[in-house]
Protein backbone atom coordinates (compact mmCIF):
# COMPACT_ATOMS: atom_id res chain seq x y z
CA UNK A 1 0.00 0.00 0.00
CA UNK A 2 2.79 2.40 0.87
CA UNK A 3 5.88 2.33 -1.30
CA UNK A 4 8.60 4.85 -0.69
CA UNK A 5 11.81 4.80 -2.63
CA UNK A 6 14.94 6.87 -2.08
CA UNK A 7 13.03 9.60 -0.32
CA UNK A 8 15.28 12.56 0.48
CA UNK A 9 14.54 15.94 1.97
CA UNK A 10 16.94 18.82 2.37
CA UNK A 11 16.20 21.93 4.38
CA UNK A 12 18.89 24.23 3.07
CA UNK A 13 22.18 22.50 3.80
CA UNK A 14 20.58 20.21 6.39
CA UNK A 15 19.56 16.72 5.32
CA UNK A 16 16.41 15.81 7.24
CA UNK A 17 15.60 12.55 5.46
CA UNK A 18 18.33 10.70 3.63
CA UNK A 19 17.51 8.16 0.95
CA UNK A 20 14.69 6.48 2.85
CA UNK A 21 13.08 3.44 1.24
CA UNK A 22 10.19 1.59 2.84
CA UNK A 23 7.22 -0.41 1.86
CA UNK A 24 4.25 -1.26 4.04
CA UNK A 25 1.56 -3.78 3.11
CA UNK A 26 -2.03 -4.04 4.20
CA UNK A 27 -2.22 -5.72 7.59
CA UNK A 28 1.11 -4.32 8.68
CA UNK A 29 1.60 -1.86 11.49
CA UNK A 30 4.95 -0.20 11.16
CA UNK A 31 6.40 1.53 14.19
CA UNK A 32 8.60 4.41 13.25
CA UNK A 33 11.24 4.94 15.89
CA UNK A 34 14.02 7.40 16.30
CA UNK A 35 15.35 10.11 18.58
CA UNK A 36 13.92 13.62 18.37
CA UNK A 37 14.95 15.31 15.17
CA UNK A 38 15.72 12.04 13.41
CA UNK A 39 13.43 12.93 10.52
CA UNK A 40 10.35 10.93 11.49
CA UNK A 41 7.89 13.79 11.16
CA UNK A 42 9.51 15.11 8.00
CA UNK A 43 9.24 11.68 6.41
CA UNK A 44 5.59 11.41 7.41
CA UNK A 45 4.85 14.87 6.10
CA UNK A 46 6.26 13.85 2.75
CA UNK A 47 4.33 10.59 2.68
CA UNK A 48 1.08 12.46 3.32
CA UNK A 49 1.82 14.97 0.57
CA UNK A 50 2.31 17.98 2.83
CA UNK A 51 5.99 18.50 2.11
CA UNK A 52 7.35 18.00 -1.39
CA UNK A 53 10.40 15.71 -1.30
CA UNK A 54 13.74 16.93 -2.63
CA UNK A 55 14.01 13.62 -4.49
CA UNK A 56 12.56 10.14 -4.38
CA UNK A 57 9.13 8.69 -4.98
CA UNK A 58 6.02 8.09 -2.88
CA UNK A 59 3.41 5.68 -4.15
CA UNK A 60 0.23 5.11 -2.17
CA UNK A 61 -1.98 2.22 -3.28
CA UNK A 62 -0.42 2.36 -6.74
CA UNK A 63 -0.94 6.12 -7.10
CA UNK A 64 2.05 8.42 -7.30
CA UNK A 65 1.78 11.21 -4.73
CA UNK A 66 3.68 13.65 -6.88
CA UNK A 67 1.71 12.99 -10.05
CA UNK A 68 -1.82 12.78 -8.67
CA UNK A 69 -1.68 14.17 -5.14
CA UNK A 70 -5.42 14.41 -4.58
CA UNK A 71 -6.11 10.80 -5.53
CA UNK A 72 -3.22 9.63 -3.35
CA UNK A 73 -4.23 11.83 -0.41
CA UNK A 74 -7.77 10.44 -0.61
CA UNK A 75 -6.42 7.03 0.47
CA UNK A 76 -4.62 8.37 3.52
CA UNK A 77 -5.77 9.32 6.99
CA UNK A 78 -3.26 11.54 8.75
CA UNK A 79 -2.81 12.57 12.34
CA UNK A 80 -0.19 15.36 12.43
CA UNK A 81 2.20 15.58 15.35
CA UNK A 82 0.58 18.46 17.20
CA UNK A 83 -2.99 17.27 16.48
CA UNK A 84 -4.05 20.61 14.99
CA UNK A 85 -7.74 21.51 15.05
CA UNK A 86 -10.02 24.43 14.28
CA UNK A 87 -10.52 25.72 17.79
CA UNK A 88 -13.74 27.57 17.06
CA UNK A 89 -15.64 24.51 15.84
CA UNK A 90 -17.53 21.86 17.78
CA UNK A 91 -16.20 18.31 17.70
CA UNK A 92 -19.11 17.21 15.54
CA UNK A 93 -18.87 20.24 13.26
CA UNK A 94 -15.19 19.65 12.74
CA UNK A 95 -15.61 15.98 11.94
CA UNK A 96 -18.45 16.80 9.61
CA UNK A 97 -16.19 19.30 7.81
CA UNK A 98 -13.46 16.67 7.52
CA UNK A 99 -15.96 14.12 6.19
CA UNK A 100 -17.20 16.62 3.62
CA UNK A 101 -13.68 17.29 2.39
CA UNK A 102 -13.29 13.53 2.10
CA UNK A 103 -16.21 13.50 -0.29
CA UNK A 104 -18.85 12.07 2.05
CA UNK A 105 -22.35 13.51 1.83
CA UNK A 106 -25.76 13.18 3.40
CA UNK A 107 -26.42 9.99 5.30
CA UNK A 108 -22.96 8.60 4.57
CA UNK A 109 -21.46 11.65 6.21
CA UNK A 110 -23.65 11.39 9.27
CA UNK A 111 -22.78 7.70 9.59
CA UNK A 112 -19.06 8.40 9.19
CA UNK A 113 -19.17 11.11 11.86
CA UNK A 114 -21.15 8.85 14.18
CA UNK A 115 -18.70 5.98 13.70
CA UNK A 116 -15.66 8.16 14.24
CA UNK A 117 -17.21 9.65 17.39
CA UNK A 118 -17.93 6.18 18.73
CA UNK A 119 -14.56 4.70 17.79
CA UNK A 120 -12.64 7.48 19.49
CA UNK A 121 -14.98 7.72 22.51
CA UNK A 122 -16.00 11.28 21.78
CA UNK A 123 -19.78 10.98 22.03
CA UNK A 124 -19.85 12.77 25.35
CA UNK A 125 -18.27 15.92 23.92
CA UNK A 126 -19.73 15.91 20.42
CA UNK A 127 -21.40 19.30 20.78
CA UNK A 128 -18.60 20.89 22.77
CA UNK A 129 -16.43 23.57 21.25
CA UNK A 130 -12.92 22.25 20.60
CA UNK A 131 -11.18 25.05 22.50
CA UNK A 132 -12.87 23.88 25.72
CA UNK A 133 -11.53 20.33 25.43
CA UNK A 134 -8.64 18.81 27.34
CA UNK A 135 -5.59 17.61 25.48
CA UNK A 136 -6.61 13.95 25.41
CA UNK A 137 -9.95 14.77 23.83
CA UNK A 138 -8.34 17.05 21.27
CA UNK A 139 -5.90 14.38 20.32
CA UNK A 140 -8.69 11.88 19.86
CA UNK A 141 -10.73 14.39 17.86
CA UNK A 142 -7.84 14.73 15.47
CA UNK A 143 -7.49 10.95 15.34
CA UNK A 144 -11.21 10.69 14.58
CA UNK A 145 -10.67 13.04 11.67
CA UNK A 146 -7.93 10.74 10.36
CA UNK A 147 -10.10 7.62 10.34
CA UNK A 148 -13.39 9.23 9.31
CA UNK A 149 -13.27 8.00 5.71
CA UNK A 150 -12.08 4.54 6.71
CA UNK A 151 -8.79 5.00 4.81
CA UNK A 152 -6.63 2.16 3.62
CA UNK A 153 -3.51 3.92 4.83
CA UNK A 154 -3.04 5.58 8.19
CA UNK A 155 -0.12 7.82 9.03
CA UNK A 156 -0.10 8.69 12.72
CA UNK A 157 2.55 10.99 14.11
CA UNK A 158 2.90 10.24 17.81
CA UNK A 159 -0.70 9.18 18.30
CA UNK A 160 -0.32 8.58 22.03
CA UNK A 161 1.64 11.71 22.89
CA UNK A 162 0.14 13.58 25.81
CA UNK A 163 -2.49 10.97 26.64
CA UNK A 164 -2.99 9.45 30.07
CA UNK A 165 -2.22 5.73 30.48
CA UNK A 166 -5.86 4.68 29.95
CA UNK A 167 -6.21 6.72 26.82
CA UNK A 168 -2.89 5.41 25.56
CA UNK A 169 -4.20 1.92 25.98
CA UNK A 170 -7.37 2.77 24.06
CA UNK A 171 -5.40 4.24 21.17
CA UNK A 172 -3.01 1.28 21.09
CA UNK A 173 -5.89 -1.16 20.94
CA UNK A 174 -7.41 0.91 18.19
CA UNK A 175 -4.19 0.81 16.17
CA UNK A 176 -3.83 -2.92 16.70
CA UNK A 177 -7.40 -3.48 15.65
CA UNK A 178 -7.24 -1.27 12.57
CA UNK A 179 -3.85 -2.70 11.63
CA UNK A 180 -5.52 -5.94 10.61
CA UNK A 181 -7.10 -4.35 7.56
CA UNK A 182 -5.01 -1.24 6.88
CA UNK A 183 -1.44 -0.26 6.26
CA UNK A 184 -0.37 1.85 9.22
CA UNK A 185 2.75 3.84 9.95
CA UNK A 186 2.99 5.41 13.34
CA UNK A 187 5.83 7.16 15.03
CA UNK A 188 6.55 7.05 18.70
CA UNK A 189 9.40 7.12 21.11
CA UNK A 190 7.68 4.90 23.59
CA UNK A 191 9.26 1.54 23.00
CA UNK A 192 6.72 -0.63 24.76
CA UNK A 193 4.21 0.71 22.32
CA UNK A 194 6.14 -0.72 19.44
CA UNK A 195 6.25 -4.11 21.11
CA UNK A 196 2.57 -3.85 21.96
CA UNK A 197 1.15 -3.03 18.55
CA UNK A 198 3.65 -3.21 15.71
CA UNK A 199 4.22 -6.03 13.33
CA UNK A 200 7.34 -4.28 12.18
CA UNK A 201 9.65 -1.63 13.55
CA UNK A 202 11.95 0.73 11.73
CA UNK A 203 14.51 2.78 13.59
CA UNK A 204 15.78 5.87 11.88
CA UNK A 205 18.58 8.15 12.94
CA UNK A 206 19.62 11.34 11.22
CA UNK A 207 17.34 10.61 8.31
CA UNK A 208 18.57 7.08 7.65
CA UNK A 209 17.09 3.68 8.40
CA UNK A 210 19.41 2.01 10.91
CA UNK A 211 17.26 -1.03 11.70
CA UNK A 212 14.25 -2.68 10.14
CA UNK A 213 12.49 -5.84 11.28
CA UNK A 214 9.90 -7.27 13.63
CA UNK A 215 10.25 -6.02 17.21
CA UNK A 216 11.45 -9.50 18.25
CA UNK A 217 14.00 -9.55 15.50
CA UNK A 218 15.33 -6.15 16.52
CA UNK A 219 15.51 -7.10 20.17
CA UNK A 220 17.65 -10.07 19.35
CA UNK A 221 20.28 -7.71 18.04
CA UNK A 222 20.69 -5.95 21.36
CA UNK A 223 24.04 -6.61 23.01
CA UNK A 224 22.59 -8.50 25.96
CA UNK A 225 20.19 -10.55 23.90
CA UNK A 226 20.85 -14.28 24.14
CA UNK A 227 22.67 -14.08 27.45
CA UNK A 228 21.57 -16.68 29.97
CA UNK A 229 21.08 -15.84 33.62
CA UNK A 230 21.58 -18.79 35.96
CA UNK A 231 21.40 -19.35 39.70
CA UNK A 232 22.47 -22.53 41.47
CA UNK A 233 21.35 -23.11 45.04
CA UNK A 234 23.96 -25.68 46.14
CA UNK A 235 26.91 -24.74 44.05
CA UNK A 236 30.03 -26.93 44.52
CA UNK A 237 33.51 -25.38 44.49
CA UNK A 238 34.56 -25.80 40.84
CA UNK A 239 31.29 -24.80 39.29
CA UNK A 240 32.49 -21.43 38.14
CA UNK A 241 35.30 -23.00 36.12
CA UNK A 242 32.86 -25.48 34.65
CA UNK A 243 30.61 -22.66 33.53
CA UNK A 244 33.53 -20.94 31.88
CA UNK A 245 34.32 -24.08 29.95
CA UNK A 246 30.85 -24.54 28.45
CA UNK A 247 30.87 -25.51 24.78
CA UNK A 248 28.49 -22.79 23.65
CA UNK A 249 29.44 -20.21 26.24
CA UNK A 250 31.78 -17.32 25.56
CA UNK A 251 32.22 -15.57 28.88
CA UNK A 252 30.77 -15.08 32.35
CA UNK A 253 29.63 -11.82 33.82
CA UNK A 254 28.10 -10.59 37.06
CA UNK A 255 29.20 -13.67 38.98
CA UNK A 256 27.97 -13.55 42.56
CA UNK A 257 28.35 -16.07 45.30
CA UNK A 258 26.44 -15.90 48.54
CA UNK A 259 26.94 -18.90 50.81
CA UNK A 260 26.37 -21.87 48.54
CA UNK A 261 24.38 -19.87 45.98
CA UNK A 262 26.05 -18.87 42.75
CA UNK A 263 24.50 -16.66 40.15
CA UNK A 264 25.96 -15.49 36.85
CA UNK A 265 25.16 -14.27 33.38
CA UNK A 266 26.61 -16.49 30.66
CA UNK A 267 27.03 -15.06 27.16
CA UNK A 268 26.83 -17.39 24.19
CA UNK A 269 29.54 -17.50 21.53
CA UNK A 270 27.09 -16.26 18.93
CA UNK A 271 23.49 -15.08 19.40
CA UNK A 272 22.27 -18.16 17.53
CA UNK A 273 23.80 -20.35 20.27
CA UNK A 274 21.58 -18.95 23.03
CA UNK A 275 19.17 -21.88 23.16
CA UNK A 276 21.94 -24.44 22.93
CA UNK A 277 23.67 -22.67 25.78
CA UNK A 278 20.66 -22.88 28.09
CA UNK A 279 20.20 -26.52 27.18
CA UNK A 280 23.82 -27.17 27.98
CA UNK A 281 23.54 -25.45 31.35
CA UNK A 282 20.41 -27.38 32.16
CA UNK A 283 22.16 -30.61 31.20
CA UNK A 284 25.11 -29.69 33.41
CA UNK A 285 22.82 -29.13 36.39
CA UNK A 286 20.88 -32.33 35.77
CA UNK A 287 23.94 -34.57 35.38
CA UNK A 288 25.55 -33.21 38.53
CA UNK A 289 22.31 -33.10 40.43
CA UNK A 290 22.55 -29.38 41.16
CA UNK A 291 19.53 -27.35 42.19
CA UNK A 292 18.96 -24.78 39.47
CA UNK A 293 16.70 -22.04 40.79
CA UNK A 294 16.90 -19.73 37.79
CA UNK A 295 17.57 -20.24 34.13
CA UNK A 296 16.55 -17.34 31.96
CA UNK A 297 17.40 -16.53 28.39
CA UNK A 298 17.40 -12.78 27.72
CA UNK A 299 15.24 -12.01 24.68
CA UNK A 300 16.86 -8.61 24.32
CA UNK A 301 15.36 -5.22 24.90
CA UNK A 302 14.23 -2.77 22.34
CA UNK A 303 15.39 0.25 24.31
CA UNK A 304 18.87 -1.19 24.55
CA UNK A 305 18.88 -1.79 20.83
CA UNK A 306 17.54 1.72 20.30
CA UNK A 307 20.30 3.28 22.39
CA UNK A 308 23.02 1.25 20.71
CA UNK A 309 21.87 2.29 17.28
CA UNK A 310 21.09 5.92 17.83
CA UNK A 311 23.54 7.16 20.42
CA UNK A 312 26.69 6.75 18.35
CA UNK A 313 28.48 9.83 17.11
CA UNK A 314 26.22 12.09 19.10
CA UNK A 315 27.52 15.47 20.13
Amino acid sequence: MIDIANLTKHFGPKVAVDNLSLSVQKGQVLGFLGPNGAGKSTAMRMITGYLPPTSGSIVIGGIDMLEDPNAAKALIGYLPESAPLYQDMTVEGFLSFAAELRGLDGQRRRDAVGNALATCFLEGVRRQSIDTLSKGYRHRTCLAQAIIHDPEVLILDEPTDGLDPNQKDVVRNLIRHMGKTKAIIFSTHILEEVEACCTRAVIIDRGKVVADGTPDHLKRHAARAGSVTVRFQNAPGGLRQDLEKLKYGARLEAVETAGSTLSAVVYPKTKADASNLSAEIYELARSRNLALSELHEEPGRLDEMFRELTSQNKV
Binding site: Y50, I76, P84, A98, L101
Partner: peptide, 8 residues
Protein backbone atom coordinates in the same frame (compact mmCIF):
# COMPACT_ATOMS: atom_id res chain seq x y z
CA UNK B 1 -0.95 20.73 7.63
CA UNK B 2 -4.40 19.25 8.08
CA UNK B 3 -5.96 21.21 5.27
CA UNK B 4 -3.24 20.54 2.73
CA UNK B 5 -3.15 16.80 3.37
CA UNK B 6 -6.86 16.60 2.54
CA UNK B 7 -7.65 15.61 -1.05
CA UNK B 8 -8.05 19.22 -2.16
Amino acid sequence: ELLLTMPI
